[in-house]
Amino acid sequence: MMGIEKQNRKTPHNRRYERSECAMQSAILKLLKRHRGRITARQVAKAAGLSRQTIYNHHPNINQAIINNEEVLVEEFSSGLDDQLKLLSRTTANPNGRIFYAILIFMTRHKEIFCQICADRNNQGLLYKIVEAAYPRLEITWLPMGMPAPEANSERVEAYIHKSVGIIRRWGEDTHCDVRRGDRCVNSLLQATAEAARSRLQ
């Protein structure tokens, strides 16, 4: 009986913590639309309806809160990728095309964040993280069969990811993250992927 009482006492605390964390994440996302990288604990607390002390109880500082928030989005993208690819298999034959469309769909769903990122060339860290998360799933003929593909942090792969981010950023800026206008972007990404594969074999 005592164990049940302890569990009951602990549950509201956990729920309260989770509610506060969700409120903070929502507030950060809203503030990042206008003040990406320049928001304060006071702004987050006010937007979330929480005290500044609650903010610091969750995160040591606002920069870490932003990083944590980005990690949540990358995890959301990664964990939902398989399901999204299954849905896209009905409409898109190319496996790499499905991955690229999955990126654009995810960005469209979170356009309040990604439209701002695409418009700010100095703050595209989250976009890089999304593309880096998708990279291992791409089918790229980098080397003859049996030889290992280059590591994700190699110079060639970094150059490929940088180029891909540039293509996606321009799509986001030009279309306001509208996946319905993503065909040209996906075709450019497929071309960049093919060029990367060819250059790796030379």
Rank of each mutant, 00 (worst) to 15 (best):
M1T: 12
M2V: 14
G3K: 11
I4A: 14
I4N: 11
K6W: 12
K6H: 12
K6L: 15
Q7F: 14
Q7L: 14
R9M: 14
K10N: 13
P12W: 10
H13A: 13
H13P: 06
N14T: 14
R16G: 05
R16I: 06
E18H: 11
E18M: 11
R19D: 10
M24P: 06
M24T: 00
M24S: 03
Q25W: 01
Q25C: 06
S26E: 06
S26D: 08
A27L: 00
A27E: 07
I28K: 02
L29G: 11
K30R: 15
K30S: 10
L31F: 04
R34Q: 14
R34E: 15
R36F: 10
R36I: 09
R36M: 13
G37N: 08
R38M: 11
R38V: 08
T40Y: 05
K46G: 07
A47T: 08
A48R: 01
G49H: 03
G49M: 00
R52N: 03
Q53Y: 09
Q53M: 10
Y56R: 06
P60E: 06
N61V: 05
N63L: 13
Q64W: 09
A65E: 04
A65Q: 04
I66C: 10
I67A: 12
I67T: 12
E70L: 02
E71I: 07
E71Q: 15
F77M: 04
F77I: 01
G80I: 02
G80Y: 08
D82A: 13
Q84P: 09
K86Y: 12
K86M: 12
L87I: 14
R90A: 14
R90D: 14
T92V: 15
T92Y: 11
A93P: 04
N94I: 05
N94M: 04
P95K: 08
P95Q: 03
P95G: 02
P95E: 04
N96V: 02
I99Q: 02
I105C: 12
F106P: 01
M107V: 11
R109Q: 15
K111R: 15
K111W: 12
E112S: 14
I117C: 02
C118H: 00
A119C: 09
G125P: 03
L126S: 06
L127H: 01
Y128E: 08
K129R: 15
I130V: 15
I130A: 02
V131N: 07
V131T: 07
V131A: 05
E132M: 09
A133P: 01
A133F: 05
A134N: 03
P136S: 05
R137N: 08
E139M: 09
L143C: 09
G146E: 04
G146F: 03
P148F: 04
A149V: 04
E151G: 10
E151F: 00
E151P: 01
R156I: 13
E158Q: 14
A159Y: 01
Y160K: 01
I161F: 07
H162C: 12
H162D: 13
R169E: 09
R170W: 06
W171K: 03
E173R: 13
C177M: 11
R180I: 09
R181Y: 12
G182L: 01
C185R: 02
V186D: 02
V186R: 05
V186S: 04
N187V: 08
S188L: 13
S188Y: 08
Q191N: 07
Q191D: 09
T193D: 00
T193S: 04
T193G: 07
E195T: 01
E195V: 01
E195L: 02
R200K: 04
R200T: 15
L201H: 07
L201D: 04
Q202T: 10
